[in-house]
């Protein structure tokens, strides 16, 4: 085995492609993730996020494409990658009939963790499981299951963490604690690739990528992604917003009309067209029209709609 230097790019893949029964699930994705980065992977359900992650950790073999993960070839060195990656699956998937300690100990043995006992003890302590380490994993509440899953992924001190919708069904407080922990780990040099549907979580990532229909549509920091979409948005306040929304939706230049609390967000991909076509309503004086920055959600829905027009 060649001695692998610590590359600055933990993930560096080009043209990764995978089909299932003739349908292209992942279509020529290029991705680079730097060391110590929290990288958010967003996209609608069935967009190929999970398939892509499974290819990164060697559960699936890409049919074409190449690249490295932690400096190892994603096609040839799947076993080396597996030994150094922590993968948390979408569904809770540890042994419900084993206790917390037994689950951690089992996974630690599979990875041949050195000083296993200490590692398990440390993990139990770090996650606040002291005193309940004998409890069966199946009896834990959703939050605690998620904590256990994360602890198990970390038991072999991986260099890369792949988290597939780790916070689905977790309450806001636990989610916040989870993200604090993720940021702490990233500070220590761990790289994290995380998929999510939550916009607030997307905003907690250092960088993002948006994938739909197996194709990567946007990437960069939150601001970069928002800026690159080139959307412009008006916030409308006033009476009868439902009727107003119905009137505005078919108007040329308007891409989205979305209720947002007591206001409407009217978004277009061309600022000039949006302004000129909505001017009859703006000058009517019945509502307050304020220009606001576009939000990430508007950008993603816009990307998804245009992707549907292009790919389906």
């Amino acid at each position: 085995m060649i001695a692998h230097t610590q590359p600055s790019d933990v993930i560096d893949v080009v043209g990764i492609t995978k089909s299932f029964s003739g349908k292209r699930e992942v279509n020529a994705i290029d991705l680079r993730v730097r060391r110590g980065e929290i990288f958010g992977f967003l996209g609608p359900n069935g967009s190929g996020k999970t398939t892509f992650i499974r290819m990164l950790c060697g559960l699936l073999t890409p049919e074409s494409g190449s690249g490295t993960c932690l400096g190892y070839d994603v096609i040839r060195d799947q076993r080396e990658i597996r030994a150094r990656v922590g993968y948390m699956t979408q569904k809770f998937s540890f042994y419900e009939d084993l206790s917390i300690r037994e689950n951690l100990d089992f996974i630690a043995r599979l990875y041949a963790v050195e000083n296993r006992r200490q590692a398990v003890d440390a993990s139990i302590e770090r996650l606040g499981f002291q005193g309940r380490s004998g409890q069966l994993a199946g009896e834990l509440s959703g939050d605690w299951k998620q904590r256990l899953a994360l602890a198990t992924c970390l038991i072999h001190s991986p260099q890369l963490l792949l988290l597939d919708e780790p916070t689905a069904g977790v309450d806001p407080k636990a989610r916040r604690e989870f993200w604090e922990q993720i940021h702490g780990l990233a500070n220590e040099g761990l790289t994290v690739l995380i998929t999510t549907h939550y916009m607030d979580e997307a905003e907690r990532c250092h960088r993002l990528a948006y994938i739909a229909y197996g194709t990567l549509l946007a990437r960069g920091t939150v601001d970069e992604v928002v800026a690159s979409a080139g959307l412009s948005t008006w916030e409308v306040a006033g009476p009868g917003l439902n009727e107003l929304a119905r009137e505005l939706r078919p108007v040329e230049g308007v891409r989205q009309v979305v209720p947002f609390g007591n206001t409407l967000h009217v978004t277009g991909s061309n600022a000039h067209a949006l302004d000129s076509f909505t001017s009859p309503w703006r000058t009517r004086g019945t509502h307050q029209w304020t220009r606001v920055p576009s939000r990430l959600e508007d950008v993603f829905i816009h990307l998804m709609d245009s992707a549907r027009d292009n790919f389906s």
């Binding site: 699956t89 996974i107 990875y111």
Partner: peptide, 13 residues
């Protein structure tokens, strides 16, 4: 059925 297979497959076993 319980999804633990994926966990096993992701380890070096």
């Amino acid at each position: 059925e319980r999804g633990t297979m994926e966990t096993l497959l992701a380890t070096p076993v």
